[in-house]
Design a protein around this nucleic acid. Sequence first.
DNA 1: ATCAATGATTGGCG
DNA 2: CGCCAATCATTGAT
Length: 343
Amino acid sequence: MDDQTRMMTGLTGLGGLAQGDVGDPDSVRKQQSLGQPQQDIGDILQQIMAITDESLDEAQARKHALNCHRMKPALFNVLCEIKEKTVLSIRGVQEEDPPDPQIMRLDNMLLAEGVSGPEKGGGSAAAAAAAAAAGGSPTDSSIEHSDYRAKLAQIRQIYHSELEKYEQACSEFTNHVMNLLREQSRTRPISPKEIERMVAIIHRKFSSIQMQLKQSTCEAVMILRSRFLDARRKRRNFNKQATEVLNEYFYSHLSNPYPSEEAKEELAKKCGITVSQVSNWFGNKRIRYKKNIGKFQEEANLYAVKTAVDAANVSAQASQANSPATPNSGGYPAPCYTPDGRL
DNA sequence: ATCAATGATTGGCG
DNA sequence: CGCCAATCATTGAT
């Protein structure tokens, strides 16, 4: 076996690895002329490439031998450097993503809702006390508030326990991977930077999971808010006197039941409700009256009589109490008054 | 449990 | 923006 064939077998053993450098016939020739250390490297590389063809025991033994080789640290350093260059050039682009605006928004909202951040009020008792203290009306709103707060506290608790779980899992997993990589760094070239990058990747993955948690927490809070803020869910019927005032106005202006802004304010004040509630009431009343005039006939007569009586009382003494005729005409279909209450 | 009454909301229109 | 019409969600009576 002359030098030429030895060189060829050496080359085929190296396969596609590092063509540019090791595969260069010149450098091989140089190595051979330089003597023992370079020859060692050639042998080692050959052994490495052959390792997969051997039995497990053999491979294990060879691995051990390689591990103990005096050139191993230097070789690994070089390999690490090469890896660093190639890997960095490939994926160095997507490093350091800026703080996601989406997650910032979620964070801000959770903070604003008091889900994340410092607990304000300790236990549920404190929350209830705070609710009681906050409410202007003693029973009505504070009960709903405490209910709301209880639900919010529930969400908050779930959020925190989940968050803790995620964080724990993340650090556990990170530790595991780091240990694994450190372990492996004895048998394959792994640079500290690589470990760092891996950790960063893991953290990114976990933070995306965290974002999902935050997202769903935000949704839960929104739903809770809408449930409690939606006035339909805490509707109270107006008191008798209020509906009386409203009905009086409605039936005495049946021809044009559209109170002006000032009239609405007046009614609102009289009834102890808001102007928009007055508007709602008239909107509902108009449409419902129109839809089924018959059903409201009785009511119409009642209030017609009532207003007539009032009018009579006002213009009382001196004059005569005259006809209780309904004061309507035009626009709306006039419900004609009949003594027995029928159309 | 069921259902009409009722206050509030929503979407469309002018 | 105010109104109408349809609809929702709760109340209160049965």
